[in-house]
Design a protein around this nucleic acid. Sequence first.
DNA 1: CTGCATCCCAGCCGATACTG
DNA 2: CAGTATCGGCTGGGATGCAG
Lengths: 122, 122
Amino acid sequence: MTHNRTFDVLTATCPSRTSLARIANKWTAMVVIALSSGRMRFGDLRAKVDGISGKVLTDTLRDLERDGLVTRHVYAEVPPRVEYELTALGHTLQKPLRALGDWAEEHITEVLAARESYDIRR
Amino acid sequence: MTHNRTFDVLTATCPSRTSLARIANKWTAMVVIALSSGRMRFGDLRAKVDGISGKVLTDTLRDLERDGLVTRHVYAEVPPRVEYELTALGHTLQKPLRALGDWAEEHITEVLAARESYDIRR
DNA sequence: CTGCATCCCAGCCGATACTG
DNA sequence: CAGTATCGGCTGGGATGCAG
């Protein structure tokens, strides 16, 4: 049995829903996908997740750190250097989120076709 | 080779990112998970996704329908009956999204512990 | 029962400017 | 370079009321 009976995201008061809300998020997905290739410094991460603003990246990383998914490494240098990497827990999330990203890439043609068809129909 | 080279969600202008933004969303995840158990009418779906408002459920379903993930069946009855079910494309999304939901349920204990630890640390 | 329309608030997110 | 602070726009999302 693969089903969890003690927690259920479909129940409004279940704490697992707070976690789902965090991980079922486009920025979270992109940052975790980007961090899949290993420890990375802030600037590189920002370049890799094309189009993300500094504020959003900072906020996303802080939330991920708070949930125990990402570790922050600060180096006392000038100029400063800060690196981020997935924790063991974060690695377990990598696969499901990459699956989502892969799905988006693999099925975008069908999705675009469906959108066009839907829009024309009205 | 599992990697897609023609589309990349990490690229800001890639259309696949618009799809990722839609599916990497807590309400989308919950609705698709709920629809995994089969065709269902609006009211039942709303009861199953505990706490979702009518407006949000309507909007979410409309977006899913537009992207070709959900089919809408309208019965000309009084009172009206409308049922929703995953399309073939929608079914391919079921597994990755359930994986996300399962992850949230399975790891919520660790996440809560990480949050507490983080919050105390500051 | 379903869903549209409206109003409105909270939070997300981006741009900019400033600090260590 | 990394991060904070602030401001403001935009959108998600909740509540209510109405129509088919």
